[in-house]
Computed example of a mutant assay.
Amino acid sequence: MKKKLLLTAALVLSLGAATIPVSPVGAAATTAEFIVTPGELTLDTVPDLNFGTVPIASLMDNATTTSQLVDYDNEDEGANANQTGDVQVSDYRGSNDGWILSAQMTPFVADADGSELNGSMTLLGDGSTSTTVAPGTFGQTIDTNSEDVIIWTADEDTGMGVNTDFISAGAANYVTLNQKADAVAGQYDSDVTWTLAAVPAAEP
């Protein structure tokens, strides 16, 4: 009985103590802070493009000849190219302003005699993906000797982080070659220049 009374008394004291109001004697305000450092806007990778073989008779006899993309393994590889078909842009600036990827190409030049063959290249991506909000559709037709042609665009608040697309082999991606009655046999190469540019921040 004595132990029970002691426990009851302890419980009453405990409950009583819990109802005693606490009177603050002072307060202080502080802050917690950190800085996020910006990164860069970079063109990470673009592919070499191989459009297979073209019959010389077709070049000589037809107004135009088309040949579809077969793979990314070229005899003369580009200095900055991949052999996978991937296109990747990374935007770690932290501005969310967007960016533009454009491309241009030279005429196709024959390794046999340096003669030129003009035409165009049509590229269409399989579908843009991003670690944030995906940029717009990748794709455009680029004429030889043209100015930069916009091929992929990230509008404001899109295309942050890592953005990828894939140029797949097949009929969706092809070259269109103009007629050349004096065409020579051999390998033809065009230099494709890809340019990534930041979209200027909007005026306040």
Rank of each mutant, 00 (worst) to 15 (best):
residue 16 G to I: 12
residue 172 A to Q: 10
residue 70 V to R: 06
residue 101 L to Y: 01
residue 176 T to N: 12
residue 180 K to L: 10
residue 102 S to P: 06
residue 64 T to E: 13
residue 76 D to T: 13
residue 38 P to K: 11
residue 201 A to K: 11
residue 33 E to S: 14
residue 144 T to W: 04
residue 179 Q to C: 04
residue 59 L to I: 12
residue 17 A to E: 02
residue 4 K to C: 09
residue 44 D to Y: 10
residue 39 G to L: 09
residue 24 P to W: 04
residue 9 A to I: 12
residue 154 A to P: 07
residue 179 Q to R: 09
residue 101 L to W: 02
residue 31 T to F: 03
residue 131 T to E: 15
residue 117 L to Q: 10
residue 174 Y to L: 07
residue 168 S to F: 09
residue 123 L to V: 15
residue 89 V to G: 06
residue 164 T to P: 02
residue 99 W to N: 13
residue 105 M to H: 03
residue 127 G to L: 07
residue 29 A to D: 14
residue 190 S to R: 00
residue 2 K to C: 15
residue 124 L to C: 06
residue 200 P to Q: 06
residue 95 S to T: 15
residue 62 N to Y: 00
residue 8 T to N: 08
residue 29 A to Y: 11
residue 63 A to I: 08
residue 96 N to C: 01
residue 47 P to I: 01
residue 173 N to W: 00
residue 46 V to F: 10
residue 18 A to R: 05
residue 41 L to Y: 02
residue 161 G to W: 11
residue 171 A to W: 03
residue 26 G to R: 09
residue 181 A to M: 04
residue 153 T to G: 05
residue 175 V to I: 14
residue 117 L to W: 05
residue 194 W to V: 10
residue 58 S to I: 00
residue 97 D to M: 11
residue 58 S to H: 00
residue 112 A to P: 00
residue 64 T to Y: 06
residue 138 F to A: 02
residue 100 I to N: 12
residue 55 P to R: 00
residue 126 D to N: 14
residue 141 T to M: 04
residue 79 A to V: 12
residue 6 L to F: 13
residue 161 G to M: 10
residue 24 P to E: 09
residue 191 D to Q: 15
residue 12 V to K: 07
residue 13 L to D: 05
residue 106 T to C: 06
residue 201 A to D: 13
residue 77 E to C: 04
residue 199 V to W: 09
residue 11 L to T: 04
residue 156 E to C: 08
residue 28 A to V: 10
residue 60 M to G: 15
residue 56 I to F: 08
residue 43 L to W: 15
residue 193 T to C: 08
residue 176 T to H: 08
residue 108 F to P: 03
residue 148 D to R: 07
residue 96 N to W: 02
residue 13 L to M: 10
residue 65 T to A: 02
residue 126 D to C: 08
residue 58 S to R: 00
residue 181 A to E: 07
residue 32 A to Y: 05
residue 131 T to L: 05
residue 4 K to W: 05
residue 21 P to T: 08
residue 145 N to R: 07
residue 86 D to S: 13
residue 115 S to D: 04
residue 169 A to F: 02
residue 21 P to N: 10
residue 174 Y to P: 02
residue 74 N to D: 05
residue 204 P to N: 13
residue 88 Q to D: 03
residue 155 D to K: 05
residue 127 G to V: 07
residue 193 T to E: 08
residue 110 A to K: 00
residue 105 M to T: 14
residue 20 I to H: 14
residue 70 V to W: 01
residue 63 A to K: 07
residue 9 A to D: 06
residue 128 S to F: 00
residue 120 S to I: 14
residue 75 E to D: 11
residue 36 V to H: 09
residue 10 A to I: 11
residue 12 V to W: 04
residue 157 D to M: 13
residue 163 N to S: 00
residue 7 L to W: 03
residue 128 S to M: 02
residue 178 N to V: 11
residue 130 S to Q: 01
residue 98 G to I: 00
residue 48 D to T: 01
residue 204 P to I: 14
residue 162 V to M: 13
residue 115 S to R: 01
residue 197 A to I: 06
residue 8 T to Q: 10
residue 83 Q to K: 12
residue 184 V to I: 08
residue 178 N to Q: 15
residue 85 G to D: 06
residue 45 T to R: 14
residue 58 S to P: 00
residue 31 T to G: 08
residue 1 M to A: 15
residue 204 P to Q: 11
residue 146 S to W: 05
residue 139 G to F: 09
residue 66 T to D: 10
residue 98 G to C: 01
